[in-house]
């Protein structure tokens, strides 16, 4: 592979890989832009990034290819996903434009920009590719390391400072200072008495051995079901089961069955 890197033209295999994966990468990028849900966008972006990692490898940037997968796809995209979860995974964006003319202007600019950029590249007569065979001869990682710790050492140190600053900045931004003292248990209890809402502990859900206990409302002393005994999620979903009637029905069925059995026994005795 390294021999081909020096070539003016790439191997057929790389060409095939480029066209196939390139197409996928473009599709992924477009999906990133046009997917309604942020999660889908993030996934498409991750895919595109992985393909880019492959392209890095194909271009002899082995270290970058690996870093791309580990750092970008592995860390950064996961961070994105975390934030998406935090903000609300189900929220689908409306793609309807609110700023007048924004979309057309954006598309126009994008089209013009792309055409001009491609024109610039085409105009630049970049036909001679030296290839990385010589540069990578001592190993790609070693080569990079030699450069980073000699020629680019200051930039490297500064990026370290940048990362620390970014970490501190993120903490500062997201940290929320508690402005008042947390309430003690006693204060909470007194508050409850003051508001006179629910003095005793909430009633426990009704328990029947035959049922999943948490979705059954507990019975109050007067025999009615108390919804308070069921957790809020099930209440919201309307998944509370009322079993108070079941018991009576069961009793009736039992009596009937026993009468039938008794009747049969009477017949048998006759």
């Amino acid at each position: 592979m390294s021999a081909q890197l020096a070539a003016y033209s790439t191997s057929t295999g790389e060409a095939f890989q480029f066209w196939v994966l390139g197409t996928v990468a473009v599709v992924g990028a477009l999906c990133t832009v046009f997917m309604k849900k942020a999660v889908h966008s993030a996934l498409c972006l991750a895919g595109t990034m992985i393909i880019l990692a492959v392209f890095y490898l194909a271009n002899g940037a082995y270290f970058l290819g690996v870093v791309q997968i580990i750092v970008y796809t592995g860390a950064i995209m996961m961070l994105f996903l975390f934030v998406v979860m935090l903000v609300g995974v189900t929220a689908a964006d409306s793609l309807k434009e609110t700023i007048k003319g924004q979309r057309w202007l954006a598309l126009l600019c994008g089209l013009g920009f792309g055409i001009l950029l491609c024109a610039g590249i085409g105009n630049a007569s970049l036909n001679e590719f030296n290839g990385l065979a010589q540069a990578n001869s001592g190993g790609n990682v070693e080569g990079l390391a030699a450069l980073i710790f000699t020629k680019y050492v200051f930039a490297f140190e500064i990026t370290g400072a940048l990362l620390i600053t970014a970490a501190v900045g993120a903490m500062v931004l997201t940290h929320r200072e508690r402005t008042e003292r947390a309430k003690t248990q006693r204060e909470l209890a007194e508050e409850r008495v003051r508001e006179n809402k629910q003095l005793p502990p909430l009633p426990a859900p009704g328990v029947y051995a035959r049922h999943n206990a948490v979705d059954i409302a507990g019975l109050l002393p007067d025999g009615t079901a108390s919804e308070l005994t069921v957790i809020k999620t099930l209440r919201d979903r309307g998944q509370i089961r009322d079993v108070s009637n079941d018991a009576i029905k069961d009793l009736k069925a039992l009596e009937q069955r026993s009468e039938e059995r008794l009747g049969r026994e009477e017949e048998a005795t006759k």
């Binding site: 700023i99 924004q102 954006a106 920009f113 001009l116």
Partner: peptide, 17 residues
């Protein structure tokens, strides 16, 4: 709207090219 300003920037970049 930041996006409107971004359009101008983008258009400007295109013009620069």
């Amino acid at each position: 709207y930041a996006r409107s300003y971004a359009v101008s920037m983008f258009g400007g970049a295109a013009i620069l090219i």
